[in-house]
Design a protein around this nucleic acid. Structure first.
Lengths: 188, 188
DNA sequence: CTATTGAGTGGCTAGTCACTCACTGATGTG
DNA sequence: CACATCAGTGAGTGACTAGCCACTCAATAG
């Protein structure tokens, strides 16, 4: 049993989803090939196609895992908030999110997903993810509508700033846009 | 001269750029083919390749035209503001922007551009566009840093909401996120 | 009328990618 | 051991695309 050479299909699926997140984050849905994901996962392209019926389903699975990780991070953040006040919980959630997306993959894949929404399955997944996050943040923080809206809007701003590397730009406009935005160092 | 059958190359370039905006907005950089842009413009794919040295340059040209139109709209909006106060100018600019992106093309192509930033030329164009817009808004409105940041953040939120069609969703989370966001009807 | 330039095209090529299929070998079970 | 099942692969296919090249024909200059 300890000498097992082959994995179970379920284990492989999980590993491939993780590889898909890392790989799709680099190039987006259309540029990344199944072969690249397979290489990252250390298996043959043919087997990836056997585990996921289509490239779209693979991407959707990666995206769902992405939203799952975000919700986990928000939950952990909320638990760690000082007092239970809405402002405190929101602030703690923001910090947890900033920390989570330090590796950029979870952030970048969301940007790519928004660009691949011509596919109905992907569109459904993105909409569902945003809905779930918004509902969770609202329910858990008990903050009012405008505060939730502000939270999501600044999350999107954070996506943009990271995408264009604004944190590394030394200019007036970059300073204005990045002011007060928490973000962890991108590189290890 | 009025009987002219052939256009000048400059006229064609402009027409192709407009076609490129409309076409790339539909499917993004990687899915849209030169042939599709050419078909929309009513010329052969080969001639598109002669007018623009590469698909990337065509996309960059479309993106630049897109930012040009946005700056124009912001400028026109600012002129129409009631008094010259920062809040009033920002509000007028927001309204002008909401009206401009009613047709969605200028908005959608920006979403796609963020996903195609693996290409350095596209990344440079996006960064330059955001920089120009931010600087213009700041200089023209004379609003303070936080107000500018808020303006851009809610612009990004608007992109997200339009992309996922949140304005048409009848749910608590959608109501919270779209509250107070101005947007024109998408369809004619 | 002739020559030259430049608009515009059809057809090709070389390469890529998602997906399939027949196959091999590992694993566990009676 | 025999056998069924399942992990995993190599080789291939059909479809598609960016870029290119040789060509046609309109417009204009001399």
């Amino acid at each position: 049993m300890a000498e097992r050479v082959l994995s179970t299909a379920e284990e492989r699926r999980g590993a491939v989803v993780s590889s898909a997140i890392a790989t799709f984050a680099q190039g987006g849905f259309h540029t990344v090939t199944i072969a690249e994901v397979a290489k990252h996962a250390g298996i043959s392209p043919a087997y990836v196609s056997k585990l996921f019926s289509s490239k779209t389903q693979l991407f959707v699975a990666a995206l769902e895992e992405c939203y799952r990780r975000i919700l986990d991070a928000l939950e952990r953040g909320a638990e760690a908030s000082e007092d239970g006040s809405p402002e405190s919980v929101l602030h703690a959630m923001g910090g947890a999110y900033a920390e989570l997306i330090a590796d950029r993959d979870l952030l970048t894949i969301q940007v790519h997903a928004q660009s691949a929404m011509a596919d109905p399955a992907i569109a459904r997944t993105v909409r569902g993810g945003i809905a779930e996050i918004t509902e969770y943040v609202a329910a858990r923080s008990r903050a009012d509508g405008p505060a939730i809206q502000h939270f999501i809007a600044f999350g999107q701003l954070c996506h943009l700033l990271t995408a264009i590397d604004a944190f590394e730009v030394d200019a007036e406009w970059a300073a204005m846009l990045t002011a007060g935005i928490r973000h962890a160092a991108p590189k290890s």
